[in-house]
Design a protein around this nucleic acid. Structure first.
Length: 271
DNA sequence: CTTTACGCCTGACGGC
DNA sequence: TGCCGTCAGGCGTAAA
């Protein structure tokens, strides 16, 4: 499950490998992703150079003079760079083949991911146009959260996972950040003070930044092998740790479903 | 407008 | 060993 840090680690790897290289062709073996892969539009990429590889929320943007590709990895997607001689795996649905023999290969067993075409500015694409601030951007802070949350009754965990509030905070890091900020995940968003939102914004930045740093150490995994997501190498404080001892107070961590999502927290430290 | 539920899809896992 | 039910999850969308 790629969260923002895994997407960012992928972006860095692709940028270091593919920037400036020329695309020879696109092979679509299975166009049935979340939306049908726009095969005709992707033909515009033939003979084009990759000018930039960017990230917005969990979307990756491949920019060329002829247009831009938007990729979302969904639940099970991964991108890796292989030789164009390498035979595709069962769930390798799409290749971007380069003149130098490299091949950018998309694998996505569950096919929740997406490959989209944007002829103009990809940030204006309907899926990206209404996203909130990047969590690691300096404009994102406790004041944003405080301002947007007034009179909102939703659980604060759902509130920060809403991409209009802040872009790219997924289920794992929402639990982690709320633990660090000592805020109970089910607390109504509109009933949290500014000072506590300052703590929460800092915690979100911290958990994401830590995970990106960790992900950087496992970049090799994105090339050849099974592409283990970076957070396996990372210390998760609450997520997936039902019954384990809270690192603050030693009490057993709890799990609760909040808005259809598993949430992990300490019932003693978080309020 | 806000809030809630659902569906897409496959692999992993537990029970028998 | 194999089969089946259940669960997980990002996130857009429809419905309330």
């Amino acid at each position: 499950m790629p969260e923002l840090p895994e997407v960012e680690a992928t972006r860095r790897h692709l940028a270091s490998t593919l920037l400036g290289e020329t695309i020879s062709r696109i092979d679509v073996r299975d166009a049935r992703l979340r939306w049908p892969v726009p095969e005709r539009s992707l033909e515009n990429l033939h003979g084009r150079r990759v000018d930039a590889i960017e990230r917005r929320a969990k979307y990756l943007l491949l920019r060329t003079r002829a247009g831009n590709v938007i990729v979302h990895l969904g639940m099970s997607g991964s991108l890796r760079v292989v030789s164009d001689q390498q035979p595709p795996h069962k769930h390798d649905h799409l290749d971007v083949v380069f003149r130098n023999g490299q091949c950018l290969r998309l694998r996505d067993a569950r096919r929740f991911g997406a490959v989209l075409w944007a002829s103009g500015n990809p940030l204006l694409h309907p899926l990206l146009a209404n996203l909130g601030p990047e969590p690691l951007d300096e404009v994102f802070d406790g004041r944003c959260l405080y301002r947007m949350s007034r009179k909102r009754r939703v659980a604060v965990k759902s509130f920060i996972m809403n991409s209009r509030t802040v872009a790219g905070v997924g289920n794992i890091y929402a639990s982690e950040a709320l633990f660090l900020a000592r805020i109970h995940p089910a607390r109504p968003a509109g009933r949290i003070a500014l000072r506590r939102y300052d703590d929460l914004a800092s915690a979100i930045k911290r958990v994401l930044q830590e995970a990106i740093t960790q992900g950087g150490t496992t970049l090799r995994d994105f090339v050849n092998s099974d592409g283990r997501p970076g957070y396996f190498g990372q210390q998760l404080r609450v997520y997936g740790r039902l019954g384990s001892a809270c690192e603050n107070c030693g009490r057993a961590l709890k799990k609760r479903i909040i808005d259809q999502r598993s949430s992990f927290f300490c019932g003693h430290c978080q309020h």
